[in-house]
Amino acid sequence: MKPFTLLTPATVEEAVAMFGQHKETARYMAGGTDVIVKVKEGWMGPDYLINLKQIPGLDELHKNENTGELTIGSLVTHAMLEQSLLIRNEYPIIYDAVSNIGSLQVRNMGTIGGNLINAVPSADGAIPLIALDGTALLAGPAGERSVPVKDLFVKPYETVLTPGEILRKITIPAQAKRTGSAYIKFGRRAAMELPLIGIGVLLVVDEDLVTCTRARICLGVAGPTPRRAQKAEDLLEGKPVTATLLTEAGTLAAEESQVRDSVRGQAWHRKEMIRVQVRRMGIKCLDIINQKAQQTGRQV
């Protein structure tokens, strides 16, 4: 591995200043599971690595009980999310996505921020945060700014972050009542996979428990960046959700995707998986909503 100097800032501001000093000879490092591989392979060769791990507060994970807003610090690891009861119970789409990223070892190191900023088309972590209408808070030389997670990605390996900017945290607005969400990573194996295709669905339904008031269908590996299938979402919104309608939505989502052939999978099959899994995930969402409704009913 090419030698580098490791800088250890204590605050985000200090990190940004360090970057300002060393400019393009520096790289930020979060969990390191990606950066270290790239340095080892010679795909990048920074003279300075700015280690964000020691900055206090970047790994906050909490829900504001008054506003219902969820805050996920950029240095929160996948394992922290996977093992949080809050995430497991209230944000199943996040749990589904993060619990099968790489191995447990990688999830113990890798962070949600690193997963986003890495900006691979297959980023499992991005899909749920887009579906949940998450917002990224960025800090950089010019101060702070907010960007919806869905607008974070420009193309593979490229985000809207300007040089020196750091992802500080992601906030998720309060979820509507009667929300169900689910994600599936489709791959050849049960673990250690990059997805052939990643499909996240979030549905909010009316009090009748069938009419869709909001739909989010988010796809990974279906184009150069993680993306929403908006035509499919539009199809669902305002209508009673049935398996047939979900299949239609899946077909639309498959049509508007930009899947490609690669060593990991063929485009036609990826489209089929979108078609099938949008339906399956949609049904899973409804199951979650119904289950919760029953529990609430019992409590009342």
């Binding site: 490791l6 390191g32 270290i36 280690n51 990688v106 113990n108 190191m109």
Partner: peptide, 13 residues
């Protein structure tokens, strides 16, 4: 207490 890949973990950390 956490299992990690020591091949990706910097000694400095």
């Amino acid at each position: 207490q956490l299992a990690i890949n020591s091949c990706l973990f910097l000694a400095a950390d």
